[in-house]
Structures are given as C-alpha cells and as structure tokens.
C-alpha cells in the first residue's frame, strides 16, 4: 500500500512539475526575447509579468472551440490528443534526481526505472509525428497540409541522427536504463575531466543537440510554422484548448529534451569533482540532487530561447541537406569510431 502511495505521489509530483516548467518556460521565452531585443516584454500581469502564462491559459480556456466546416471532424479532434499525449508522457523514465533514503528504504527520484527506458523514449518520440500529420491533413487547409507535410518530413529525417546519437550512448554505457547511465557518470574521466557523457561523445552530443532542436520544431528548424510562408503551419485551423495542447506539448517537449541532454551528456545530478552524497544527509542529498539536475535543465532551456532569438531560419532544402548529407553520415561515423575505441580498450 505504502509503495503504491509513494509511486502515486511521484507520478503526480513530477507530472505537475514538468508542466509547471513548461508554463514558466513560456514566460521565460517572452521575457528572454524582450531582453535580447532590448524591449520590456510582458510586464503588466503580476510582478515582471510572471502571471502572464496564467492569463494566456485563461484566455485559451475561455475561447470558442471552432471546428471548420470542411475539416474531417474525428481526425481533427484526434490530432492535438495524439501530439500532446506522448509529449506529456515521455518524462516517465527520466531520472530527476538520485534518491531519498527514509528508514533504510530507498526512494528513487524517478517515476519508473525500467530497463527499456531508451526504447520508451524513442517510441513516444516517434508518435508525435502522427498528431502533426493528422492535424494538418484533417484541417483541410492548404497551409495546414503544407505545414504538416514539411513537419513530418523534417521530424522523420532528424529522427535518424537522433537515434544514431542515442545508439552511440548505448554503446558507451551498455544499458538502456536512464538511471544506470546517470549513475555511470560520477567521478572523473581521464583524471581531470568530469566523467560526463559529453566528453566521451562530443560528436554525439552535437548531433543529439541539433536533432533535438529539429525534433522540437525550434529555430533554426521552425519551418513547419514559418509564419511568413504558411501562416502557422499544421495548427492554422486550431483554436481554443486544442491549439493550447499543440503549443503546450511543444514546450513540454523542450523540457523533456533538455532533461535528456542533461541525463545523457551532462552528468544528470552529479556535480563535477564533488560527491554530494559524502557530506549531505539522506534527505538533503535527495533534494540537492533534484536541484542540481533542474539547474542543468534550466541552462539548456535557456539555450533554446537564446538560440531562437539569435539564429535565422533555414531554407527547407537546407534543412533536408543538413539532415541527410551531414548529420546521418556523421552519426554513422560516430558509431564506427565509438565501436572502434571500445574494441581497442576492451
């Protein structure tokens, strides 16, 4: 009974926390844009405009839900569901801290430490494509279809280098469990560097990062929503909370991708050179590992914003060329080198 209660608390807590991060992220994005472009940004709702996401939410909730007459009704309603469901659910296997020890019982800070965490992430990551292509198709609008097609082609193209980067990580750590990967990153590497994935997989990190930006439809890969060409792409016809699910799903995706980058390449909850568990009590250690993990995630979230307001958008043919001509051969090369190094050091 106690076990189920703990599991339930973890599920609810981390689900709400991830969504809260996504909500705050919408605010950070707009304030960050304002800061970079030297203008005030949203500053009316609450101190520093902090209540702006709340106001946006209320607005989305109270809008009329319009289904266009020409749309294919059932698919149109299914689209946002299929997009947001995997986006909201991917975090289930990501460790968000080490563990608490209460009365000799270990409570892992992870919803589920299954040994197929990798496959779960890859599977759910692929599912988002259905929401996009169905939403675009069912809207029966030229902009939507163009946006949906572009987005689908882009997402599937960048999923290959993404998968290749993950494969190299699996080669290095020999496990599909995200917690085991995180645990393997304590201590130092080659005597001086922190034992983080980024130092073992520098090329893999770059590939993963680029592919993550493309998977999240973020600048410089935000072609599915290039406003000047196709209005807002696959969600042109959506309004009210259905649009909200699309937009929100994207931000949740960004939070999840940042967490994955932290887990695979930046040592999850480990601080460089310092072993926190040595001098912190069992409970304060749990809290500290949670805080360290989310500080790292916050940095990558900020990087998403920073890149968005710094880099211009690619042309579509450039996106496809980059994906197939550069990233995939580099990904294959990375696997070859990784396998060779492991073979030589075995």
């Amino acid at each position: 009974m106690g076990e189920i209660l703990i599991a339930l608390i973890k599920v609810v807590f981390i689900w709400v926390w991830v969504l809260l991060c996504a909500v705050v992220m919408t605010w950070v994005e707009r304030r960050g844009a304002a800061m970079i472009q030297d203008r005030p940004g949203p500053n009316r709702a609450g101190p520093f405009g902090l209540l702006q996401p709340l106001a946006d939410g209320i607005k989305l909730f109270t809008k009329e839900d319009i289904v266009p007459a020409k749309a294919k009704k059932i698919l149109f309603m299914l689209g946002p569901l299929l997009f947001s469901f995997p986006a909201f659910s991917t975090f289930a296997v990501v460790p968000f801290g080490d563990k608490f020890v209460i009365d000799g019982k270990e409570i892992l800070l992870q919803v589920s430490n299954v040994n197929i965490g990798f496959l779960y992430i890859v599977a759910l990551g692929s599912m988002a494509v259905y929401g996009i292509i169905l939403g675009g198709w069912a809207s029966n609008n030229k902009y939507s279809i163009l946006g949906g097609l572009r987005s689908t082609a882009q997402l599937v193209s960048y999923e290959v280098p993404w998968g290749l980067a993950l494969l190299a990580i699996a080669l290095v750590y020999g496990t599909f469990s995200l917690r085991d990967i995180a645990l393997a990153q304590s201590g130092t590497f080659l005597g001086v560097l922190p034992n983080w994935g980024v130092f073992k997989q520098p090329l893999g990190f770059i590939l993963f990062m680029v592919a993550a930006y493309a998977e999240a439809n973020r600048v410089p890969f935000d072609l599915p929503e290039a406003e000047s060409e196709i209005v807002s792409g696959y969600h042109t016809e959506y309004g009210s909370m259905r649009l909200g699910l699309y937009l929100f799903g994207e931000y949740v995706n960004i939070v999840t991708l940042s967490s994955l980058i932290t887990t695979f390449y930046f040592g999850a909850w480990h601080l460089p050179y310092i072993d926190m568990s040595a001098f912190l009590g069992p409970i304060s250690y749990g809290i500290a590992s949670f805080i360290v993990f989310f500080l790292k995630v916050a940095f990558f979230l900020w990087l998403f914003v920073w890149v968005r307001w710094t880099v211009p958008r690619f042309r579509y043919d450039q996106v496809m060329t980059l994906g197939w001509r550069e990233l995939i051969p580099l990904g294959l090369f990375n696997i070859f080198v990784t396998a060779l190094v492991i073979q030589l050091t075995a």
Binding site: V11, F61, T62, K63, S84, F88, A92, M241, G244
Partner: peptide, 28 residues
C-alpha cells in the same frame, strides 16, 4: 516499474481530457 508508467500515461490522458473538457465548459 511498468505499473507506474501506466499511472503516468493515465495521468497524461486524464489531464488532456480535463483540459479539453474545461475548455468546452468555459468557452462560448
């Protein structure tokens, strides 16, 4: 571990339908 994943998926599903439901109730 798999039960908790199912819980998590259920949480997502409930939340999505709650969001759509509240929106349908509040919207004109």
């Amino acid at each position: 571990g798999y039960e908790t994943i199912v819980m998590y998926l259920g949480m997502s599903l409930i939340a999505i339908f709650a969001m759509l439901g509240i929106s349908a109730l509040l919207g004109p």
